[in-house]
Amino acid sequence: MSSSMIEPGHAPPERPRVLLMGTALSLIPVLMAFAGLFGIYLHQRAAELAVSGDWLDDQIIPLTQPNMMAITWVFSAFTIQMAVWSLARRDRSMGLLGLLLTMVLGLAVLNQTSLLVSTMELDKATPVGILVPAIVYAHALMTLAGLVFILLVSFRVLAGQYLEHPEGVAAAALYWYVTGGVYSVIWFAIYVTK
């Protein structure tokens, strides 16, 4: 039986955006994991500053890549919204273009993260030397998961789904916005404020 068919006799309830709800729910533990990590980071930072008055000491976190990544995230928020908007109007070509651009920008973020980590000069024998890589790598993993999500959604769009009802693309967009939102906290709390 085709999975798109329903057996007679069953009365499935209306589906108020199950995938969107599932995505939102899956973001709860992810967000809480970052909240916990940020909490520990800020707590350690405050404690260290209170004792020694110095947090990063002679350790270096460059600002060029983080700023470029922030701009890339802003651009990618526009491109994925373009995909949702286009698909809701049955414009599949523009929708796919938006998804493709978002993936390219996401890969650029990962590339810049890799460069940033290689240029950071952190002492791994200090708490900050552990906390920063842990948070940055965890976010890179979240970004990678988002890219896989967008890729899967793109295949579905190619197969003719999500036209007029772009729920899957909206779910991917929600995930992407939240990933960008988490980056904005990392950018401000770690890279800028240090």
Binding site: A33, L37, I40, A138
Partner: peptide
């Protein structure tokens, strides 16, 4: 979900 998320953050930090 909220509790397990924070626990995951703790475990990631311990592991790293």
């Amino acid at each position: 979900l909220t509790t397990l998320g924070v626990l995951a953050g703790n475990v990631i930090l311990i592991w790293v």
